[in-house]
Amino acid sequence: MFLEIKDLSVKIENKNILKSLNLNINKGEVHAIMGPNGSGKSTLANVLAGKEDYEILNGKINFKDNDLFDLNIEERAQEGMFLAFQYPVEIPGVNITPFLHSAINSKRKRMNEEEIDNLSFAKLLKSKASDLGINIDMLKRSVNTGFSGGEKKRYEILQMSILNPDLAILDETDSGLDIDALKIVTDGVNKLKTKDNSFLIITHYQKLLDYIKPDYVHVMVNGSIVKSGGSEIAAEIEKDGFQKFQ
């Protein structure tokens, strides 16, 4: 199993958020998690990425034969996990290009691969940026600083395409995107999809799933997955909302 979440319960500040959650993702699969506000979707994404604010009460997560809880935040990233943030953090003064260069090399180092040199990296970045319709001038700016909502999401996908993760978690990447930006971003995701990598897509709406076809759709309510199935569930939610699952 590529990612196996078993009986996971998590709390933050005395509030139980995830309750005995189970989820399995195989290599090459695209899974979507849909759920109402406050159901714990982003908590799941943050726990997977290693955010330290949460208390793990119970459960186990295996990722690529590793006990995920044995890996710290950066080790998870270096092992091939990537979280596209719902609210990407602005970091003034940290330039995008050297930051991404350092990020890709930290992963290569862990994988015992040769580090990528400045020139090759610049070429790679330019070509990926061009695929996503990102202006080269934007690459001279600080991380997420002064970006519009759409630019921030596009930039998350650029990072994802550069780091080429084994498991990408997209936390409401569609929020704040107009239809054109949504198309560009989802095109970027689809280009990355191979039989060797997997996606976990968190969203409220079916719209995103019109562009990225999931193999499985899960409904998450009150910290647990209450229903799993195919794309038909997304259509069901679009029609009737989450009420019937609660």
Binding site: A49, G50, K51, E52, N72, I73, E74, R76, A77, Q78, F82, L83, F85, P88, V89, I91, P92, G93, V94, F99, L100, S102, A103, I104, S106, K107, R110, S142, V143, Q159, L163
Partner: peptide, 27 residues
């Protein structure tokens, strides 16, 4: 949050801290 963001891209905690200190006085 900035530390978490940088670490989630593979940067170590110490490297992330240093880069944020440098960026603080970058201007």
């Amino acid at each position: 949050n900035a530390i978490f963001y940088l670490r989630s891209r593979g940067m170590s905690k110490i490297a992330a801290t240093k880069i944020l200190i440098s960026s603080f006085i970058n201007e």
